[in-house]
Amino acid sequence: MKQKITGGRIIGTVLVTLFAVLCVLPLLYMVAVSFTDSESLYIKLKDLRPNLSNYVYAITKRNFGLALKNSVITVVGSCLLVDVVSSMAAYGFEKKPVPGKETLFQGYIATMMIPGQVILIPMFMMMNRAHLSNTFAALILPMVGAFGIFLMRQFMVAVPNELLEAAEIDGCGEIRRFVTIVIPLVQPALITLTVFTFNAAWNNFLWPLIINTRSEMAVLPVTMSTLSSNSTTNYGMVMAGATLTFLFPFILYIFLQKQFVEGIALGGVKG
């Protein structure tokens, strides 16, 4: 259908464009300030020159190097664990005649309605009792959730049973069937789940804040939160830290935009 260029359409386009600018302006400002060595916020254009000193300072003097390493380890560990455990469980739920599986599955689904604050305190006590505070295990193990299993199961439905039976008749073993037939078929869902888990683990704040209290075990958002923004703060360094925290998801977003939007959108709809 042919749309005529109307005044309303032009005004709408301008307004949506303006909103898009407002969406990125704070982030552009963050990047701009991270490159200045001005201690006041009255930034002049002449202060803006490629200057990595804030980054060097944040990484070497304010623990950001270590936090970056901790975040990367946590995220990689979380993605691996969630992918493996979720796709295994989804396969068991969808393709195997396990008695009582639907009841258990409904139980999993019900946990998605539980707010995080409810499980936080007992989880904190358990981790302490198991001497797992200030470890990566404390950050990674709780990342497995019902959403990933639910998402993977929806894709397992599309894996044809005949294909699995034919492979079995051909003498293809149980584990080989799972790894070489099922996993490649659900790969798009695995990528979406990985992106979702990446984002959740990377941005996780409250749990790492309370469970990993030693600064050597802090992840990026926690280290970020310790940079106080009082009057003596070096704003450039604070913004460099914020930029570092933002950079990794942003790079991933540029390359995997579709999966990123899908992973985050599906994750929120879970409720």
């Binding site: 469980a89 005649p97 008695p99 499980i119 019902a146």
Partner: peptide, 28 residues
């Protein structure tokens, strides 16, 4: 046999879900 294999696939998720998602609700 298939049921047992299926249970084995589900078990890791059950252990983690039970410890970190389900039991904390009742403990709370």
């Amino acid at each position: 046999r298939q049921a047992l294999i299926g249970a084995a696939y589900i078990l890791p998720s059950f252990a983690l879900m039970f410890i970190f998602n389900i039991s904390p609700i009742f403990l709370s």
